[in-house]
C-alpha cells in the first residue's frame, strides 16, 4: 500500500508541475472560437512558451466564466448586456472583429434573395412554404441556435427586432458548425450562421438584394452585422495583454480578414 501511495503521489506531483506553464484560457462563443484558435496559433509561434487554450460554450458562458474568474478571457459574439455588467461590474470588452450573419440554405433551394422582413416571417413561422417567397412548393425547415447563443441573440436583435420569437418548430443545434451541417444535409432547410462558418456546402442568400460578402458588410450595405468581443475582468494581465495587442496589430487583423471576418483596425 505504501509503495502504491508513493507512486500515486509522484504521479500527482508530475501532473501538477505541468499545470503552471504560461497559459491564457479563453471560453465562450463558438463563433469566435475558430478565429481565436487561428489567432492563438499565430501568437504561439511569435511568443514561445505561451499557450492559449480555447474552449466553446457560448457567449453567455464566456461572459459568466470571465466574470467568475474561471477563465482569463470570455469570447462573446454580441454586445455585453446591461444585466451582465450589473452582475460583474469590472468587465472590459474589446471588439476584436465584426462579423456578418449569413442566411444559409442548402443547394436544392433555388431562392437567392430574401428581404429582411421575409427572413423575419420565415423564422417566426409566418411563412412556412418556399413557394411563398418564390421557391419550390416545399415546406421550410427552420434551423436555429439555442437560447443563450450570441449568434441567436444578435439575429433576434437585428432581424426579428426583439419583438417576435423564433418558431418553436425550428430544429435547434448547439453550435454554428452544427447549423451548417444540418442545413447542408437537410433538404429545403434554412439557417443562419456567422460569415466565418460559410463553406461550399451551403448557399448564403442575399438580404435586401445585397450579397453576403465581407466587402458589403464592411461598407455597411449588408444589414446583419454584429461585434465579436473578448471580455476581460478588469485590467488584463501582461500575459493576456500581449495576446490582445497582437490581435489588434496589423498582423492579427490580417488573420481576422483572412478568416472571413471584418477587421476593426489596419491590416498588413
Amino acid at each position: 500500500m505504501n509503495r502504491t501511495m508513493a507512486c500515486l503521489t509522484a504521479m500527482a506531483l508530475c501532473i501538477c508541475s505541468l499545470a503552471f506553464a504560461e497559459k491564457i484560457t479563453v471560453a465562450g462563443s463558438t463563433t469566435v472560437q475558430p478565429l481565436a484558435e487561428k489567432l492563438a496559433l499565430a501568437y504561439e509561434s511569435v511568443a514561445p512558451g505561451v499557450t492559449v487554450e480555447i474552449t466553446g460554450g457560448g457567449s453567455s458562458v464566456g461572459v459568466t466564466s470571465v466574470g467568475n474568474g474561471s477563465v482569463d478571457l470570455g469570447a462573446c459574439s454580441r454586445d455585453v448586456t446591461q444585466a451582465e455588467f450589473e452582475r460583474f461590474p469590472g468587465l472590459e470588452a474589446l471588439c476584436i472583429a465584426r462579423d456578418g450573419i449569413a442566411i444559409i440554405v442548402g443547394p436544392e433551394v433555388s431562392v437567392t434573395n430574401l428581404s429582411k422582413s421575409q427572413v423575419r416571417d420565415i423564422f417566426t413561422g409566418d411563412i412556412s412554404n418556399w413557394s411563398e417567397v418564390g421557391g419550390p412548393d416545399e415546406a421550410i425547415v427552420l434551423v436555429s441556435r439555442e437560447e443563450g447563443s450570441g449568434t441567436r441573440s444578435a439575429f433576434e436583435n437585428i432581424v426579428l427586432a426583439d419583438a417576435a420569437l423564433i418558431s418553436g418548430a425550428a430544429v435547434l443545434q448547439p453550435s454554428n458548425g452544427a447549423v451548417v451541417t444540418t442545413v447542408s444535409t437537410t433538404p429545403y432547410s434554412i439557417g443562419y450562421v456567422s460569415f466565418g462558418y460559410l463553406n461550399e456546402s451551403v448557399t448564403a442568400l442575399s438580404v435586401n438584394g445585397v450579397a453576403a460578402t465581407v466587402e458589403n458588410a464592411q461598407a455597411a450595405r449588408y444589414p446583419i452585422v454584429r461585434p465579436l468581443l473578448l471580455v476581460a475582468a478588469g485590467d488584463a494581465s501582461p500575459l493576456v495583454q500581449g495576446w490582445l495587442d497582437f490581435i489588434m496589430s496589423p498582423a492579427g487583423q490580417s488573420i481576422v480578414e483572412a478568416e472571413g471576418y471584418l477587421p476593426v483596425g489596419p491590416v498588413e
Binding site: G57, G58, S59, V61, T64, E146, E147, G148, L172
Partner: peptide
C-alpha cells in the same frame, strides 16, 4: 446538455 453551458441565473 444543449443549454447547460449557455445558462446563467434562473435559466
Amino acid at each position: 446538455a444543449v443549454e447547460m453551458s449557455y445558462a446563467t441565473g434562473l435559466h
